[in-house]
């Protein structure tokens, strides 16, 4: 059993304005995993992270970071946590080196030039160590934020929308970096609304919507459990309407009648694919190509969030 590194118990948050940002959240994050928290804008992702990191005060509930309650044992809890916020908030006149060593000191660590150098080199910031932050590009500033968060050697790293607004190449670099950190034993919790990011990196996924944690599941299991597969037959001749003999498969026509689409559950005992293909052949329907496609995490996410939205309405 993998140890739990962050444990959230009955956590709620209602802001002074009356906005209920979090409704009784319970969640355990396992040591060494990459956990992706997905949710639309305003779902409560940043509030949740901000509470764990000590920036926002919870209304009720408890949070443990590496066994230390974040309010009672805030020093030990916070010393384990690094945070890369969503906004690029930097002191523009500081140099990369100064701001990173400041963060290390702020988190109570003795100066360690070798460690800071290693962090900066890992993030390809070493050549820019004497540059003022105002001279750096957005991508470089994002790296500096990560360097600051890693400067005190945290074992839990929160990345709030880490690749928002960065180019494709940097995004790939970030993903690589996150994996390397995980390989070094750091537990990563990231929020994102890029589904491909979660699909690419996460071990487990939590979906939050309107302050509620809708589900938490291993990524692979989630895709398998909720995933649907589609088989598309590209027809030689377009079809005006689906013959009644194919009614039991609930097919649909796409691309102006050129494609016959069958959606089926991968986990069902009988998928119905062989019988459908036999019936199609019997009816003399000729196709020139066949392809299948598994539904993505994005499809699952959209369906989950919209189902909840309809239920709430």
């Amino acid at each position: 059993m993998t140890p739990i590194v962050v444990s959230i118990k009955d956590l709620t948050k209602t802001y002074a304005s009356g906005l209920q940002a979090l409704k009784t959240i319970n969640l355990d994050i396992r040591k060494g995993e990459i956990f992706a928290l997905l949710g639309p804008n305003g779902a409560g992702k940043t509030t949740l992270i901000s509470i764990i990191c000590g920036i926002v005060t919870p209304s009720s509930g408890e949070v443990y970071a590496d066994g230390h309650e974040i309010r009672r044992d805030y020093r030990l809890a916070r010393s384990k946590i690094g945070l890369v916020p969503q906004e690029l908030t930097t002191d523009r006149f500081e140099t990369v080196w100064a701001t990173t060593t400041f963060s290390r000191g702020l988190f109570g660590k003795k100066p360690n030039k070798d460690y800071v150098e290693r962090v900066l080199r890992d993030l390809t910031l070493w050549d820019k160590r004497n540059a003022q932050l105002q001279t750096l590009s957005g991508g470089m500033k994002r790296r500096v934020m990560i360097a600051k968060a890693l400067s005190h050697e945290p074992t839990i790293l929160f990345l709030d929308e880490p690749t928002a607004g960065v180019d494709v190449e940097l995004r790939r670099d970030m993903w690589e970096l996150v994996r390397r950190l995980r390989d070094n034993g750091v537990t990563i919790i990231l929020t994102t609304h890029y589904i491909d990011e979660a699909e690419e990196m996460a071990d487990r996924i939590g979906v939050i919507n309107r302050g509620e944690l809708i589900l938490v599941e291993d990524k692979a299991k989630l895709i398998k459990k909720l995933g649907k597969k589609q088989m598309t037959l590209v027809l030689q001749e377009p079809m005006a309407k689906i013959p009644p003999e194919l009614g039991e498969w609930h097919l649909s026509l796409n691309d102006g009648g050129h494609e016959l689409v069958y959606t089926f559950d991968t986990n069902a005992e009988r998928t119905g694919v062989p019988s459908l293909l036999r019936r199609v052949a019997d009816l003399g329907i000729h196709f020139r190509d066949l392809n299948t496609e598994q539904s993505s995490l994005e499809d699952i996410f959209v369906s989950l969030v919209s189902d909840r939205g309809k239920a709430a309405a």
Binding site: C53, G54, I55, R75, I81, L83, P85, L106, F107, K148
Partner: peptide, 9 residues
């Protein structure tokens, strides 16, 4: 944010 999330009283 950094000040508020640091282990400092």
């Amino acid at each position: 944010y950094e000040l508020l999330s640091a282990p400092i009283s």
